[in-house]
Design a protein around this nucleic acid. Sequence first.
DNA 1: ATAGGGATTCCAGTCACTGGAGGGTCAAGG
DNA 2: CCTTGACCCTCCAGTGACTGGAATCCCTAT
Lengths: 132, 132
Amino acid sequence: MNIGDASKQSNLPPKTIRYYEDIGLIKPLRDANGYRSFRERDVHKLVFLARSRALGFTIEDCRNLLALWDDQTRASADVRAIAQDHLSQIENKITDLQAIHNTLSQLVHDCAGDHRPDCPILKTLETFPKTT
Amino acid sequence: MNIGDASKQSNLPPKTIRYYEDIGLIKPLRDANGYRSFRERDVHKLVFLARSRALGFTIEDCRNLLALWDDQTRASADVRAIAQDHLSQIENKITDLQAIHNTLSQLVHDCAGDHRPDCPILKTLETFPKTT
DNA sequence: ATAGGGATTCCAGTCACTGGAGGGTCAAGG
DNA sequence: CCTTGACCCTCCAGTGACTGGAATCCCTAT
């Protein structure tokens, strides 16, 4: 299977697939003409990668998850640890974003948004304390 | 004022301040010895930048906000538009992260996390549909 | 004179791709 | 047989917003 079909099956752009080969996440074969030749196993890995990335795992997370996936003797605890760690990071990020959202939506709410030069948003950006 | 003091007052690392000068966000003067010399106005801008960045505005947003801040005749509507746009992006991001959080916490919950090789997390990464 | 702490520039690396140039390969139609 | 157009290849450079490090210079105090 050529890269175009692998791309369609995995929903990853060809550029990204080549990049994943570059950094050693997949190792497709090569045809005589130099074209990459993707086996079922390669496509399966690409699908796995697409989904892991969609859940926000980093490439290094993915590399570890793939290694565990390949390893028939892995302990599920190892996988769980990676996922749990990632989950905490997501929770922190959501908390941060919600704080930012609160501050910013208050600002937008307070702003008349008319033609006058007086703007509470800019005023606050000058003066509000770091920890709000 | 030297860069070290400007750094302390704005809570930005010196490297970042030099970078902000590189990309034209601030224009400190220079002393005879080549050291950057920060006026009140420069430090004020740095504080503004630190706070805007902490609220997640991009550098280009900040550039626009600073221009508006400098412009005595600006309309508050212009500022509000940037903030409103940014707010929508934050809302989208929170929604995405919450969906990811739901999926992932379910996975972690389902996973025994013991020494056995059977792992529902890896299984799901192979098979769950893109739009969950 | 020397030691330290600060300042300078410039180059390179991060993360995860993405865009583009410049070229080779293949199947179908004229 | 030739051309067209859709693929495919590699390699280089750029993104955003810094950050690290090397090599060097400046200033102050002992």
